[in-house]
Design a protein around this nucleic acid. Structure first.
Lengths: 217, 217
DNA sequence: TAATATATTTAGGTTCGTCTAATTTAAAAT
DNA sequence: ATTTTAAATTAGACGAACCTAAATATATTA
């Protein structure tokens, strides 16, 4: 029975707040963490004491400023370690998540800043997700969904919104890689598929689901 | 109240076995870990169940083969991460211990082997301690204490037997660094001090205590 | 060998993060 | 507005790693 720390909860709350709005429900948290609701209630009480979250019973939970800073720090760690794993150790982008999940909890401000410098202060991780800087500020990567493009539009593949291994594998197999220039050759209205021209050479046809998971700018 | 895992105990037992012989006493373990004896008894029982140690009450404890392999793995991780911190991130040798103490518990065979390759399969960490290879074999660095040299002898500084920050600082301040060629210019019998010539230039006088903490070959 | 001193274990308690089962609170539907 | 359903909390328990105080076992010394 795998046990979670405050940091794990902070990160999960942070991610839920990003996608589902300011206030997070006990059940939502329980669901994403794979834990039962009473465990969450317990933990939230403890974290409330420590002023990491503001928690009022049966009213959901929000990160305090303090909690948010910790959460962003973990996201920063995670993404920098992912860059390290891919750039320096030669991992593929679909392999690094679990290892980074461990490395993100290594403590030490100086360490992560040195790592950041060593990696050349990257702005995005191998999936195109923005990396908060040492002050906790996220660079705004103004990207849009591939599905928002029109026929003839051209853009650079900058990130994914679906981080699942299966999707990453799919992209690899289709020969679509981060940094590629994608041109929308045609959009088939009836079955909502996109035919893309890659780097002026290859052509691939992808579903709307895929077009909705690819970020470009 | 800082809490330890099985891995922490395994490493501590391993180190005690190396220096104090095969069988380790409850109290010795309690002492080095900074924990009270009953906590150790408890933990040893649990670890005995899992066949990580062979434990018979009031008779001390020994690592099993399984436990030894895990312990060596941790030592390998620790020393490789130390090399990383010094070689890649630019830390000094006296700063890396605590961070490596965290990093040594990151799980994943593949990760550590990739790191090993990335670092060029080093044989020793920044303090001159041998790094076990992927099979758990320690390279034998046949080094001796500086204090075993005679007047006129010359050797290379390959490691330290005292890893304390204060000693490492002392060496830095004295301008003695790993890899240096040391020549014993003279030994003062009465107060047991060694006057060393460094790289044919500088001269330093050190106490017997220091000469006993420096490894050369 | 007996007495003392030291090391170790047992007994019983705490905190943390989990669980299930039962209860209460809040939201949705009639 | 009442009933029904769903969400959240409380109650009570467990395992892991810790603690203190008391009891036992081992070693040392007289």
């Amino acid at each position: 029975m795998h046990s979670f720390t405050e940091e794990n909860y902070l990160k999960a709350i942070y991610k839920l707040q990003e996608t589902n709005g300011e206030v997070v429900a006990t059940s939502a948290l329980a669901q994403v963490m794979g834990v039962h609701a009473p465990s969450v209630t317990d933990m939230l009480k403890r974290m409330g004491q420590k002023k990491l979250v503001s928690y009022q019973k049966s009213k959901g939970v929000k990160l305090t400023e303090k909690g948010k800073q910790v959460a962003i720090g973990i996201v920063r760690n995670h993404r920098l370690w992912e860059v390290f794993l891919v750039e320096k150790l030669g991992y593929r982008w679909d392999e690094v998540h679990d290892i980074a999940e461990q490395l993100e909890h290594i403590q030490g401000e100086e360490l992560i800043n040195k790592l950041d410098a060593y990696l050349g202060f990257p702005e995005a991780d191998p999936h195109g997700d923005p990396i908060p800087n040492a002050k906790g500020v996220l660079p705004k990567l103004k990207s849009v969904l591939l599905s928002s493009l029109k026929e003839g539009d051209q853009a650079t593949f900058t990130g994914v919104s679906d981080h699942s291994t299966s999707f990453l594998h799919y992209l690899d197999k289709a020969g679509i890689a981060l940094g590629d220039t994608l041109k929308v050759k045609s959009i088939e209205q009836y079955d909502q598929t996109y035919t893309l021209t890659l780097k002026g050479k290859k052509e691939v046809t992808v579903s709307l689901k895929v077009a909705n998971s690819i970020l470009v700018s």
